[in-house]
Computed example of a mutant assay.
Amino acid sequence: MANPIVSRAELAVGGRPMSVKGVVQKTSMLLGLSAISGLGFFFYALMAGLSSGFIYMASIGSMFAGVVVAFLIMFKPHMAKTLAVPYALLEGIFLGGISLIFMQMYPSVPLTALCATFVTAAVMLGLYRSGIVKVNDKFRSIMMSAIFAIMILYLVQWGFVLFGSSLPFLFDGGMVAIGFSLFVVVIASFSLLLDFDNIERGVAAGVSEDYEWVFSVGLLATLVWMYIEFLRLLSYLQD
């Protein structure tokens, strides 16, 4: 289970079992809440004429608050039912703010990134359901190594940013940065296959339906990651 939110959670078996339909319904609800809060913040910031600095700080603040909530869900999965909605709202604010910042620089990028995210998600679901891509132990091992390597690079990048710098080549918009961003988009996209497989494994194991929220939050996190990576890649291509 490469998705950290799911892989770290200890899911209980018993009671009424979870279902794929239940996860789909909860994921749809969380996506709807994220869209509402994201669009709300987007248009409020636009109409109120908020400064880019304030929008950026609000977005980053929401992102870190969302990370804290995700860690709580990770280590306290029984709290997912309570924390899923706040997590979705925080992610929405983060996405709304970041999308507005990108739109001010590259007007067509946010909508293109959004379409690319959902089209890619549909393609990944089709690949998974058709069995063209098999989620086996080797696939999981490769994906987990790639995801954790990317996470470490991003943590190092944040450290550089705090000191007003950046990792050489990987985030400067050049050809190496475009290649790296494309690689991360591919890894984020294939992470959806792991999410789909995790859900099927949870259903097969008879995990309690209360933990459908954990899988839904995991799916939302992957989709948010995909969208952000598409934003980054498309902005590099615009430059």
Rank of each mutant, 00 (worst) to 15 (best):
A9V: 04
G126S: 11
Y128K: 08
G53H: 03
G32A: 08
S51K: 03
A45D: 03
D197W: 07
G22F: 01
G159M: 11
A48I: 05
A84K: 01
L83R: 03
M57N: 04
L167Q: 10
G92E: 12
M1C: 06
A12W: 09
Y211P: 02
S191D: 11
D210N: 06
S130W: 13
Q25N: 06
Y87D: 03
I150C: 07
G202L: 05
F64V: 03
W158E: 08
K26P: 02
M57Y: 05
M57R: 04
R8H: 09
A177K: 13
R129Q: 12
G174A: 08
L231A: 06
G49L: 06
L95N: 11
G14Y: 07
A221Q: 09
V203H: 00
A121L: 12
Y128I: 06
P17S: 04
D197G: 06
S165R: 14
L162E: 07
I178L: 14
L223C: 09
S235F: 10
A116V: 12
T120Y: 12
V161F: 15
V203F: 01
F180T: 05
F64K: 02
L155K: 13
V68S: 03
V20E: 00
D239E: 10
W158T: 07
T82C: 04
Y128T: 09
M29Y: 04
M143D: 07
E209G: 02
D137I: 10
L127E: 06
A2P: 14
A122C: 10
K76P: 01
V133F: 14
M1A: 08
A121W: 13
T222R: 13
M47P: 02
V203T: 00
Y106I: 09
P168G: 11
V156D: 08
L127H: 07
S181T: 09
R16S: 02
V214D: 02
A149G: 15
F139E: 03
L125Q: 13
F160R: 09
A205G: 04
A177Q: 10
I199Q: 00
M124N: 06
F148I: 13
L234S: 05
E10M: 09
V23E: 00
L194P: 01
G40Y: 08
M124P: 01
F215W: 09
L46C: 04
G126I: 12
V156C: 11
Y128S: 07
I142Q: 09
G53N: 02
W225P: 01
M47Q: 12
Y44E: 04
M226G: 04
E10C: 05
M226Y: 08
L194R: 01
M144W: 13
F94G: 05
Y128V: 06
R140E: 11
L95M: 15
A188G: 06
